[in-house]
C-alpha cells in the first residue's frame, strides 16, 4: 500500500548568512490510517517540518512523496493545487472568516478544488454533521465557543476529503475541556480511517497519538 507521506532525507536550509539548517535528513513514513504526533519545543524545526509536510514550503534537499508522487520539486501553482486536494489544515488560530457563516466557512475548502457548486453544500453539511455541529450551520464563528470554532475548522478540512489531516497546535488556543473535546474528535476520526498528523509542543496532546516522533534541533527521532 502506498504511504500517504514519505520523506526521504529531507532537509530545509534557509540561506544566510548565517545559513540555518532548520530541518536535517528527515526520514518519515506516514501510512494510510496513521495517527502521528510530532512533538518538539519551539525553535526545534517543528514549524519548518509543518510547512514542508503541508506543501507550504519546498525542501532544499531530499524527496517528498505525497500519495506516492514526488511533490518536492513542484512549482508554486502545482503545490497549491496539491495541498488543496490532499491536505486538510487545522490551525491553532482556527482561521475562520468571521463574517461568513459556519457553512460558508466549511464550503470554502472546496472552492479551489473545482467541486461543483451543487455538491459543496451537501458535502459541507455532512462534514459539519461529522464533527457534531449540525445545529450551528448558520451561526457566525464569533457566536461559537473556541472548541466549536476548532470543530468548524476540522469540518472545513474534512470536507475537502484530504489524504492527510495536518493539525498545527490544534488545542493551543483552547481551554482544557474544549481541548479534550477536540482530541476526542481526532481519536474518533482516526478510528474511522483518517490519516492524521498533529504537530504540538504539548506532551498530553501528543500522547493521544498512535505513533509519536520528536523533533529537536531539526532532527527527527521516534519516541
Amino acid at each position: 500500500m502506498t504511504p500517504v507521506v514519505e520523506l526521504i532525507g529531507v532537509g530545509r536550509t534557509y540561506p544566510g548568512p548565517p545559513e540555518v539548517s532548520a530541518v536535517r535528513e528527515v526520514n518519515l513514513v506516514i501510512e494510510p490510517g496513521d495517527y502521528l504526533s510530532i512533538v518538539g519545543p519551539s525553535g526545534s524545526g517543528k514549524s519548518t517540518l509543518l510547512h514542508l509536510l503541508g506543501l507550504l514550503d519546498r525542501p532544499t534537499a531530499g524527496q517528498y512523496l505525497l500519495d506516492g508522487r514526488d511533490v518536492a520539486g513542484l512549482g508554486q501553482g502545482a503545490r497549491a493545487a496539491a495541498r488543496g486536494g490532499r491536505i486538510g489544515f487545522v490551525f491553532q488560530a482556527f482561521h475562520l472568516l468571521g463574517r461568513r457563516s459556519v457553512l460558508d466557512n466549511v464550503m470554502l475548502s472546496m472552492l479551489y478544488q473545482g467541486v461543483p457548486r451543487s455538491q459543496r453544500r451537501p458535502r459541507a453539511l455532512a462534514a459539519l454533521d461529522r464533527v457534531g455541529l449540525s445545529a450551528r450551520t448558520d451561526f457566525l464563528p464569533t457566536q461559537l465557543s473556541g472548541g466549536e470554532r476548532q470543530r468548524v475548522a476540522i469540518a472545513r478540512a474534512l470536507s475537502g476529503e484530504p489524504s492527510l489531516l495536518l493539525a498545527d497546535e490544534p488545542t493551543g488556543n483552547l481551554d482544557q475541556a474544549n481541548a479534550a473535546g477536540v482530541m476526542d474528535l481526532f481519536d474518533e476520526l482516526h478510528r474511522s480511517g483518517l490519516t492524521l498528523a498533529v504537530i504540538t509542543h504539548d506532551e498530553d496532546v501528543s500522547r493521544r497519538a498512535q505513533r509519536r516522533v520528536r523533533i529537536s534541533d531539526g532532527e527527527l527521532s521516534a519516541l
Binding site: 500500500m1 494510510p32 490510517g33 496513521d34 495517527y35 458535502r123 455532512a126 462534514a127 461529522r130 474534512l158 470536507s159 476529503e161 479534550a180 476526542d184 481519536d187 476520526l189 482516526h190 478510528r191 474511522s192 480511517g193 483518517l194 498530553d204 500522547r207 493521544r208 497519538a209 498512535q210
Partner: peptide, 25 residues
C-alpha cells in the same frame, strides 16, 4: 477514550483498506 490517559492511545485497530470508506459518507 477518556481524559485520564489510562486507555491505550491506540483505541481501535487501524481499519483495513476495505473498511476505509469516504469519511463523509
Amino acid at each position: 477514550v477518556g481524559l485520564d490517559g489510562t486507555t491505550p492511545a491506540t483505541a481501535g485497530e487501524r481499519p483495513t483498506e476495505t473498511e476505509r470508506i469516504s469519511l463523509l459518507d
